[in-house]
């Protein structure tokens, strides 16, 4: 009786995983919030870094970001997941996670002229979404004056710069 039970233990656990997966796939297929099964590709960090070296004036320092913020000279775009944006972001920054670019990018920036200065950021030096987003803004939408605030949210926060909590207005 007991050995039969322990065999069933694993089979039933697999059944739970399968039932859960099936419901997830079904919900994703039927829901309007569904996402494609195939994950959209993202360039590698090394690829983005080497690209960034060839774009003049791409790198924005903390001091430059702060100046642009104070003088309202740039539109900041937060490339982190929405959850992190909601938890705290640069005042006035728009939320556009790099993975949402295809879906929402163009609509979000509809009213922003092509020669506007944009500064993207993500959590800090180790994240790549700000670079990825900047590359798409430059290459796909033609925002040639886009810069990347490499040190990102981490440095902004550490320097006690102003921030806002909550969703996009």
């Amino acid at each position: 009786m007991n050995t039969v039970r322990s065999n069933h233990l694993l089979l039933k656990a697999i059944a739970i995983l399968l039932v859960g997966s099936g419901m997830g796939l079904a919900h994703n297929a039927l829901s309007s919030a569904g996402i494609p099964l195939r994950t959209p590709p993202q360039p590698s960090f090394a690829e983005l870094m080497s690209w960034s070296l060839h774009v003049e004036g791409l790198r924005v320092t903390l001091a430059e970001a702060r100046r642009a913020f104070d003088r309202k000279e740039a539109t900041f775009i937060d490339a982190r997941p929405l959850r992190d944006y909601v938890a705290g972001h640069i005042p006035g920054a728009l939320s556009l996670p790099a993975s949402d670019f295809e879906a929402r990018g163009q609509a979000l920036l509809r009213d922003l002229p092509r020669d506007a200065r944009i500064i993207t950021y993500c959590s800090g030096e180790r994240c790549q979404s700000s670079l990825h987003l900047a590359r798409m803004l430059i290459e796909k939408l033609g925002y040639r004056r886009t810069g990347v605030f490499f040190d990102g949210w981490h440095a902004w926060n550490a320097a006690a710069c102003p921030f806002v909590i909550g969703e996009m207005p």
């Binding site: 919030a33 996402i35 099964l37 929405l82 949402d100």
Partner: peptide, 23 residues
């Protein structure tokens, strides 16, 4: 579960899973 896109962002941000498995 209502917003798989948000959770996908989270999974991506962790940078642990190989790309095809994220979604």
């Amino acid at each position: 579960l209502p917003e798989p896109a948000f959770f996908a962002q989270t999974v991506r941000a962790y940078e642990v899973l190989p790309l095809p498995l994220i979604h």
